[in-house]
């Protein structure tokens, strides 16, 4: 999946206007980013990419860039 598409998905989860997230944001600065988002990302990664993530792994992420990096080859520029 293209990075732009993935950012759109995250915007959708956050109920943002498409294009709100640019990719470099710190999670702490994002309105509405909470622990429930991680639960949704775990099932999203599993269903879309067959990727096994955990709350502990996602908990290490500090930025949207870190989240994208977690998706490995499944999200590309």
């Amino acid at each position: 999946m293209k990075k732009t598409e993935f950012l759109k998905l995250l915007d959708q989860l956050l109920e943002n206007k498409p294009g709100t997230l640019k990719g470099a944001e710190l999670l702490l600065d994002i309105d509405g980013w909470d622990s429930m988002i991680n639960l949704e990302l775990i099932s999203l990664a599993d269903e879309r990419f067959g990727l096994v993530l955990s709350v502990d792994l996602l908990g290490k992420c500090q930025s949207i860039g870190d989240i994208i990096a977690m998706m490995g080859d499944h999200v590309v520029d």
Partner: peptide, 9 residues
Amino acid sequence: MRLNLTADQ
């Protein structure tokens, strides 16, 4: 289920 929980949880 454990994937969805922190070690503390």
